[in-house]
Amino acid sequence: MNTKKKGMTLIEKQRMSGWFFLAPASIMIAVMSFYPMIRAFILSLQTGTGANMKFTGFSNYQRILADKVFIQSIGNTFFYLIIQVPIMLVLAILLAQLLNNQHLRFKGLFRTCVFLPCATSLVSYAIIFRSLFAQDGLVNSILVNLHILPQAYNFLGNALSARIVIIIALIWRWTGYNMVFYLSGLQNIEYSVYEAAKIDGANGWKTFWGITVPLLRPTIIMTFIMSINGTLQLFDESVNLTKGGPANASITMSHYIYNTCFVNVPNFGYASAMSFIVFIMVAILAFINLKVGDTRD
């Protein structure tokens, strides 16, 4: 990965063809994402409805400071982020590593099983998670029968446990998804590297941290950024599992923004302002991530 050498051997013509390669995607993103983003930012400086929008400067941003529910939703979302993302990604790398073993049988079957959750329709997944954690659900009856709980607990009806159920659901749903990237990334590591490590007497744990993790670094950075982005924009679980309840204890930022647009009396100016706060948070975290993780430059 000596990039300096590569940079020096590139002639001008190749640089130009490089731009040609980027052009279609970049133009599309500019038109389909950046232009609407600029429009949304302008909208965030306005209040009113429909055609009757008026410029009111940063009043929507000031409003955020006084919005208890949105501030609570920021707290909830970061709670999910901090706990769920590390657990999920470590689990995903671990599974990818196990499933990459040459000697393992039924690999295709195991892989498909682990991937299944994210392909399972949201509707059935929400129904089943709610019923699993209901007061007369499977989880309660197991815990009560094992005498871990004295009596059935209303998991979705209490603040902390409702958040934990969301985290469990997220880990369940997205671990296999992230595993896909690691499995694909692992193909770039020659198996002989592992054989060599084994000869050197490195155990599984050592090869995992010493070989797998460093060589997967680009993929790990990517999944980290994706997970940060996905969690800070988390919507499905909050809406479908807990409805943001009890008493807004599990509502996420995106859920609240959606409500502001489509459930409550529509207020797109304010929703856009909140969206830009989310945008700034994701951007900051993603770039810290890139700077810390990317050692190439």
């Binding site: 994402s33 995106s254 923004i257 969206s275 994701v282």
Partner: peptide
């Protein structure tokens, strides 16, 4: 790095202009 920013705004915000 700039293109990466495009995925960070919640979809609801850009939906109307789109």
């Amino acid at each position: 790095s700039i293109l990466l920013l495009a995925m960070m705004v919640p979809q609801v915000a850009t939906m109307i202009p789109l």
